[in-house]
Each structure stands twice: as C-alpha cells, then as structure tokens.
Design a binder for these strands. Structure first.
Lengths: 339, 339
DNA sequence: TTGAAAGCGCTAACAG
DNA sequence: CTGTTAGCGCTTTCAA
C-alpha cells in the first residue's frame, strides 16, 4: 500500500514527463501547440499517474464550471421523471454535468437555487412548478442563462420551451368531438399550473364556441388521487357529459379508476375520456387511455439548445420553442375512424 | 445599465466594507472570530453587491467541492424515480449538491463517472444497474467514498445499502402461503439483477423446502412489458399454480394486465398475485396489487449516512445497511385474515 | 515549441 | 480581533 492518498496534479505529470506544467495543460487540452514527442511523453506520464484534470481549478480559471442546474419538482411523477431523465442525458451528451435540484419538501427553492449559483453554473433548466420570479431575476443579474420548461412566469424574460396551449386545448376538443362527444366536461385543477390550466380553458372555450355544453370540474391538484376526487365531483355534479378531457394522464387515470371501479361506469360506452402527456402507464393494457403525447425528448433537446445559444450570446433576443404534440388514440375513446 | 457583468468577489466586498478579504471570509463562513461590528459591515456590503461565495474556489482550497455523484439508470421507472428523488433531497438537506448521472443510452457509464471524478466529488451514490467494478476501484484509488444501493458487485469492497434478500423471498412465500396459495410460480427475469434474481430464488427455495411445487417463469427483463410476456409464458407453460410472486411491481402489473385483460383471468379468485416494491401504481384502484414495500426514503437516508461516515473516516470497515421492508395487503391476494 | 509568471477567488495559518 | 501571506490546480499570455 504505497499508494499516496494525494491526487496527482499537473505538476506531478510535468515532473515525470520532464516538461513544464503549462506543456501538460497544452498537451491534454489540445489547445496550444505542442510537439508530438512532448505530447506523447505527457500522455504516458498522465496515464501512469492516473492523472485527471481538476475541473474545479479549470472552472475557477475560465469562469465556467461546466455545471448546469436542473431544477425539478414532483420528480416521482412519471412525466417529470421522464423529463428529468432526458434532460440529464442531453446535458451529459453535450458535455455538461447536471446538478439536480428537487424542489419539493421543506427545503425552500430559493435557498437551493442560491446554492446552485455558488457553483458558477453555466446555466439552468427549470421544470419546477413554481420558480419564484426573483430567482430568475437574480440569475439574469449574474448572467446565468435560464431556460423555463412549461413554466409561465409572465413578466420575466427568459428562454422557454413550452407546449402550444392553444393548439393543445383545441386538439383535445377536436379529438373528443371526432370521437362523437357532444356534451363535454373538463378537469381544471384548483391549484393552477400554466399549461394545465391553460389547455383546460382553451378546451372549454372551444366547446362553447361550438355551441356545445361543457362542465368544469375542479379537483384540488393534478395527480392520481385528484382524478379519483374528480370522479366523485363529476358524479355529484349530475353532469350529462359524454366526453371528458382530463388535462393530465395522472388525473385521467384516477378519474378512469374512480368511474370504472367505484361507479361501475363503462368506458368508452358510457363516457369517453381523454388524457394528456402520454405517460407510460397510459399505454398499459388495463388503462388503455387515449391521450395527447407531449414529446419530452424533443423538449429536452430544445431546452439544451436554447441554453447553449444563450451561453454563446447572452444578449440575443429571448426565444420560445414549442414542444411537439400528437394525438394518441386508444381505448377510452371510440375509434376515430368509426365515431 | 450600469450593471457590471463581472461577479463580485470577496475582494470587492472587502473594499466596500473597509476590511481585508480574510475578514470577509471569516464573517461569512462563521468560522473564525469576528467582531460584531465588522460582521455587520461585511454582511451589508455583501448584500449590497449581491456577493456570493464561489464554491469552486472554496472547493479548490479545501479539496472538497460539496458535489456528490448520483448515478442511476432506468430513471423513468417509478421506483427508480422515487429513489433518485429522495436521495437528491437527502443530499441537498445535508448540504451536498447531487450531480445526476443517468447511465442508460449510448453514453458509456465509465466515461461519465470519469467526468464526475474530475469534479472532485465528495462521494458517489450508485443505484445504477451495472456499475463496472473497475470504476469502483478507481474511486477507491482516489479515496472517493462510494455507496452501492441494491447492487451486488461481489468482490468489490464498498459500503452498501441493500434489501435483505433472504427475508424478502421468505416474506413473499409466507404472504402467499398465508393467503392460501399452495402451488406456486415465480417470475425470475433472464436479465439478472442482484436483488430481483436473489429474492426469486429464495422464494423458490422456500416453496421446495415446504414440499410445495413451484414453476419458474423467465421473462426477459423486469418491466411492464416483460410482465405481459410472462403472462403468455405462464399460460403456455400450462402451470397449475394458484399463487405467483412477481418480484417487481412493474412485472406484477404487466402480468396482472396480461392475465385479466387478455386471458380473462379473475384475480385473486383464480390466481393470487404478489408484487414487490410498492410503487405508487400498485395502489391505484384498478390494480390494487398486494406487494412488499421497500422503504426508499429510509434507503436514501442510510446511503447518505454511510457516505458521510466514510468521508469522515476513509479507513473504517465497510458496512452494509438494510432497507426496511413491510407487507402490503391489497386486492390481488385473498384477505390475510380470511385465507 | 517551450518555460516563466500571473492570476482565477477563496481560506487557513500566522503574526500583529 | 484583524491583516498578511501562502497556496489550492489550472490556464494563458508573454518571452525566449
């Protein structure tokens, strides 16, 4: 065990290779000009010592740690988990390292973001539910690029990747209408969320514009249990609806279970149901939920691109990229081709 | 727009507060002794300038960045997502910052871990499926604490947090036996995994030890689609089993759907089913899956504790902590109290 | 092409 | 209690 605990530095490599530290830096970073021979000697020495560049030191020097904040909440929710996964992967693929900040719980988001800022992050990707506007401002003050994914934060200027709310609500209406729905209901959670609330309203507007009735049901939040709650509310409301837009798959799945299991309702015979997101569970045989797919992979790629673009030019105009969506016909609506 | 783009340093604060930089450091870190008056002046100046300590510089100085690697795979799977969430939260709560490394995809794990090491991480928590032993060795060489969560990696020495495999398989057997099962089957994925394969085998052993028949069904992997596959395999096998241990909830849910939806099987009347993990979806009304809960929160806390203990004393003996488990009786088994 | 030297921002040990 | 000083490990001009 003659192993030294101390990690080798570029100085050690230099000594072993009989060159100066700066030569080591040049050889390994490939930045400056180095003779082939020197390069090889350095490489060998580095190899031998198990040397690795200290990114902290490098970051300290050129003000860029390569770290990126990835701020998310409700990470145990299928869609969010997917979002974080693809974002992390994309970041990693582009040479960044994502620092994961999970917002929920007792820890306060501003405090956590603060910590992030202490690391000189190259940027931040935020999918959290409620990022206080102040922190966005603080980031701007520090010239840290922030990309908001499906967040509103009206009034704050930042690059965004988001769903087309108008198109979403409208597509939902069209799908249910095409499937034969004529009396509608929509789930609009009390606890508001930019995209969810948005598409619920657009959907309702579409119904009204078509001169068709629409009942608004308001569960507390937007998860599975809230879907169950919504099923009760729906029943209590005595609504005559024959088609319901559930605004998130989790809501839809809860609603579906509440209706089927507790109320013995037949889907889609008695009632057609449409979700939103296309989480994996929507495709499970027992659920077979018709829904609208939100392309998480594309969203992640867009977010990272926007971030990089702003890193390169901090003063460029703010941009909004749109996440692609697509209808997914499954068993909770009547066949599209046989309405 | 008189804003300077340059971030303020401790030097700027010192200047404004009319003290030396070291005083600033002391005042803000609370480490050394500072007079009340100085502290206040520094605080005010720091506030005014929007100063924040540069952790990179600090880390460079005391060889500890406060960064921790969180290595995970299959992040879009409910249990894993939960695991990552609680681990990240615990890390954050303890003052660390988790760097999220997602293992799957084309990016090779060793390369990513390498990058992690460049950041002088204080430690690593690994829940990934297949962390090559070499990287663990590399970490040890660099004196970076590694905690393995539910990973085997026999031969490598590291702290671990893991399920009691023996107890798990046995509990599964006891539950199904208590519920009235007498002819068993168990799902043991071809693609082996330490804990999953382990409990499958222990379960089978328990059956045999009790002199009761047990059929082993081997789907490819351990996710929902594999559960569906297992249902087909099960039917083809012509097994007479009346109780099946599914080894993961995802498998169980797929198996359940395959049986119910495709084969019109009645659960639990025709067949009892037991899962493992207690993911959120197991509790959904439409599934109502009996299972064994694995306490992810406790596991995360244990993992972080182990990591901290090793940070404090790198030479302490390796430790293995056990994740608590508990039976969860739901509707896919007959009532425990009425077998 | 290579070496020398100046920092990046912070902290801790040491004087005063 | 406060200022001075010496690095932490790396990169990058600037000369040679």
């Amino acid at each position: 065990m003659t192993e030294k605990k101390k990690k080798p530095t570029s100085f050690d490599v230099a000594k072993l290779a009989n060159v100066h530290r700066s030569a080591v830096s040049r050889a390994l970073s490939g930045k400056g000009r180095v003779s082939e021979e020197t390069r090889e000697r350095v490489m060998k020495a580095a190899q031998e010592l198990g040397y690795r560049v200290n990114y902290l030191a490098r970051g300290l020097h050129d003000q860029n740690s390569g770290l990126v904040g990835l701020v998310a909440s409700r990470l145990d929710t299928p869609y969010r988990a997917l979002q974080v996964k693809v974002a992390a992967r994309e970041l990693l693929a582009q040479g960044y390292c994502p620092i994961l900040i999970v917002a929920e719980g007792d820890m306060t988001l501003p405090g956590l973001i603060d910590r992030l800022l202490n690391y000189n992050v190259a940027g931040m990707i935020v999918t959290s539910d409620s990022p206080p506007a102040e922190i966005i401002d603080e980031c701007k003050r520090l010239a840290v690029p922030v990309v908001l994914v499906n967040r509103d934060l009206r009034g704050t200027e930042a690059d965004r990747v988001q769903l087309d709310i108008q198109a979403s609500g409208q597509l939902a209406f069209e799908m249910l209408y095409e499937a034969g729905g004529r009396r509608f209901a929509v789930l609009e959670p009390k606890e508001q969320t930019y995209t969810v609330t948005g598409r619920a309203r657009v959907f309702a507007d579409c119904c009204r514009a078509a001169g068709l009735p629409v009942t608004v049901i308001s569960p507390q939040r937007q998860n599975y249990p809230d879907g169950l709650e919504a099923a009760e509310l729906f029943q209590d409301s005595g609504s005559e609806a024959d088609a319901v837009f559930c605004t998130t798959d989790l809501l839809a799945l809860g609603f579906l279970d509440g209706l089927r299991v507790r109320q013995g309702c037949r889907i889609p015979e008695d009632l057609q149901i449409l979700g939103y997101d296309d989480i994996e569970q929507a495709g499970w045989l027992g659920n077979d939920l018709s829904t609208i797919r939100q392309d998480a992979g594309a969203a992640a790629v867009l977010a990272v691109e926007l971030m990089q673009a702003r890193i390169e030019d901090i003063d460029r105009p703010f941009e909004v990229a749109t996440i692609p969506i697509a209808p997914v016909w499954r068993g909770t609506t009547r066949k599209k081709d046989a309405p």
